[in-house]
């Protein structure tokens, strides 16, 4: 083993300490405070809730009493999904009411057609089969159940075209 003199060791150590100190200062200056990583389950729940809010708003815009049971089932989904949000997540981001203008997604400026609603339901049902993969077991069951309801919605709307 190669011997290292005490002087060299001290010199190296001093340089090392200086380097660490410099790095520490740089880190303090450059690195912003590390944001807490959001809980994936909460992220998924928020995504589901946002989608349901858009669906409820679209059905509300259709203004057809024939479609009311469809909207009510989406509202039931929305209520159950909101119920499963952790209290901290609820207080951190207030969820807009279903009738308020949803951010992003389909526009609710006009009256939604049955065809548009059917397409929405089809896309939603297809998405649920993927979303179950990343959810906790209880949420996966809820998502699968919601997806089955949406698949039936899509079929019912197809028949009314």
């Amino acid at each position: 083993m190669r011997s290292v003199s005490r002087r060299a060791l001290l010199r190296g150590g001093a340089l090392g300490v200086a380097a660490v100190a410099a790095a520490g200062c740089a880190a303090e200056e450059r690195v912003p405070p590390v944001a807490e990583r959001p809980d994936p389950e909460t992220v998924l729940l928020r995504e589901l809730i946002a989608g349901k809010e858009r669906a409820v708003a679209l059905y509300a815009s259709a203004a057809s009493s024939r479609l009311t049971p469809f909207r009510q089932r989406h509202e039931a989904h929305l209520a159950e999904l909101r119920r499963r949000l952790p209290p901290a997540a609820v207080s951190a981001t207030p969820t807009p009411s279903p009738t308020s203008s949803p951010s992003g997604g389909a526009s609710t400026g006009g009256k939604a057609s049955v065809r548009a609603l059917r397409d929405l339901e089809r896309r939603a049902a297809a998405l649920r089969a993927r979303q179950v993969e990343g959810a906790s077991p209880p949420l996966a069951q809820l998502i699968a159940s919601i997806g089955a309801c949406e698949a039936a919605h899509a079929l019912a709307l197809s028949r009314s075209l």
Binding site: Q72, A76, Q141, A144, I146, A148, C149, A151, A152, A156
Partner: peptide, 17 residues
């Protein structure tokens, strides 16, 4: 659920639950 709907047009909000 869709097969059931073709036989009887009823929709449950939470099928299977």
């Amino acid at each position: 659920v869709t097969r059931s709907y073709t036989l009887r047009p009823e929709i449950d909000a939470f099928p299977g639950m």
